[in-house]
Design a protein around this nucleic acid. Structure first.
Lengths: 123, 123
DNA sequence: CCCTATGTTCAACGTTTATTGAACTATCGA
DNA sequence: TCGATAGTTCAATAAACGTTGAACATAGGG
């Protein structure tokens, strides 16, 4: 497996790319789930998203989210942990991420987003 | 020319559709220009956007912006006046439009957006 | 009534996109 | 060292997208 994947610098993050990233339902769900996880200040593994799609399709979306500067991947053994690049996004586009997340939260059922409660319910 | 074009109701406006709309550079420029015009509380004609692209291509983008609920078109004679559906967008996705507009403003030159000053300069 | 100005619609095109499964790489644990 | 686990990469496909020019529809002014 390759080294730590390439990420754009903060200044290289472009608004249209970010919006395009967030416009895909699967990627929006990934971002939403990462945002939920922020509260616990921990990261998520790729496998934590298998409910959303197959792993090869997820790898495609992960790559896109990385290349657009929305999230960051840290390689640890055979796992890859990801988290939102909140600091960079907030610096570049103040209020944008929060507006998207809370808008998504309002439409959680319509967007078929998994909430923390759902995760518990499934158990 | 057909009657007043179809617009989705407020509740029919979907987040991914809106984000997708705003992710295209030309549509983002249209929205940005409409947002600037809001301050003067007036509308813009299709022709006011010819600097962005050809008219047939603009018509395509206008249709998309309309269908996604981002803007509204009012037919007046041979002209069509448009404005942002700010009230609806703010109600559905609080803070989103403003975050996008101000983010775009920060990158105005990178995004090749026309500002009010530019319009004056061209004169 | 014609001519012009304003926009839309249509067909065509090349490009990008999302999705799939199979093959592959790398790491960890027994 | 072997096998299982975690993800990526690749090739193939179908659908959606953005762009173009030509044709069309409509309203207003001489």
């Amino acid at each position: 497996m390759s080294r730590t994947p390439l990420h754009p610098t903060r200044e290289q993050i472009e608004l249209p790319m970010v919006l395009d990233c967030l416009s895909d339902p699967i990627r929006l769900a990934i971002v939403y789930q990462l945002a939920q996880q922020e509260r616990v200040s921990s990261e998520l593994r790729c496998g934590d998203f298998y409910a959303l799609s197959g792993k090869s399709n997820l790898a495609y979306h992960f790559a896109k989210l990385r290349e657009c500067g929305v999230m960051q991947t840290r390689v640890a053994g055979t796992n890859r942990f990801m988290r939102l690049r909140r600091e960079d996004l907030d610096a570049r586009f103040p209020g944008l991420l929060d507006a998207v997340i809370s808008s998504a939260a309002k439409d959680a059922d319509r967007l078929q987003l998994l909430t923390e409660c759902d995760a518990v319910k499934v158990d």
